[in-house]
Simulated scan of single mutants.
Amino acid sequence: MPSPCDPRYAPVGDVGAALMMVDSRLKSVYDSSTGTDPDPARQQMVDQFAASLGPTGLDDLLDGTCTLIYTLMTWLRAACEDHGKDVIEYSVPALVGSMRVMRKTFRPEVIPTMAGLLVAAGTGLSPNLWRAQHGDWTEAEMNPLEATAVLLAEHVNRIADDRLFATRLITEALAAADQD
């Protein structure tokens, strides 16, 4: 019997918008790591986009972010399995460790939820359907959700040794879905 958290029952959401937000944050992180000043025009564009979303747009962005997390964890699971590793054991502790040191973004009470999203996706469950079992999203979870997707994308990029890999992976998946 399929799980009620099976990804085929989950809304996909606006993966393109979620990817734009994550990619913009990744570029800011990479810019700051090289001493380059963040691009204020890029940040202004992302902020304007986020402000333009209505209630359904925010729900679509939320679902799109969860789809992004699911897709990246699926890629990680396959990569780990190719090397005889468990994705949960290999990736989740590193990501949770990063969350714990980012105290302004990840308050202690949201870390278990973000870790749960990663574990759900890593075991083949829909992160948004898994989260829905525990009630509605809270305002306090919005920034941590975005940051979780950014940390995960950066983790994938490090494993692939390519700063654009996660973005390209999702872009190619979106293009393939459009062709189907």
Rank of each mutant, 00 (worst) to 15 (best):
M142S: 07
I111T: 09
P2M: 15
S24I: 05
S98Q: 11
N157R: 04
S126V: 11
V29S: 13
T71E: 06
C5D: 11
C80R: 12
M102P: 00
P38F: 11
D60A: 14
A173M: 08
E172C: 08
Y30P: 03
M114Q: 14
T74A: 14
R103D: 05
T71A: 10
M45W: 00
P108K: 09
P112I: 14
H83V: 06
I170P: 02
L62D: 08
T71G: 04
M73T: 07
Y90W: 12
K104V: 05
S32Q: 15
M20W: 05
E89H: 06
R103F: 00
Y30Q: 12
K104T: 06
L72N: 02
A121I: 05
G116S: 12
I88H: 05
A120K: 12
M45A: 12
D47S: 13
E81K: 13
Q43D: 13
L61M: 09
Y70H: 12
T113W: 07
T167F: 05
L68C: 08
R25P: 00
W130I: 02
T123Q: 15
S52N: 07
L169D: 01
L68Y: 05
D39R: 09
D23K: 09
M1Y: 15
L72H: 02
I170L: 10
V29D: 14
D86N: 15
A147E: 04
C66A: 12
K104P: 00
E154D: 10
D161P: 01
A41K: 11
T167W: 04
P11A: 13
G16Q: 10
D60P: 00
G122L: 09
V92E: 02
T65L: 03
P112V: 13
A175E: 08
V12E: 10
I69V: 08
V22E: 02
S32H: 13
G16P: 00
L95Q: 06
A51H: 05
P144H: 10
M102C: 03
A147T: 00
A140H: 00
M20I: 03
K27D: 06
A175S: 07
L174Q: 09
P93I: 10
P127H: 10
V15I: 12
L53G: 13
D37M: 12
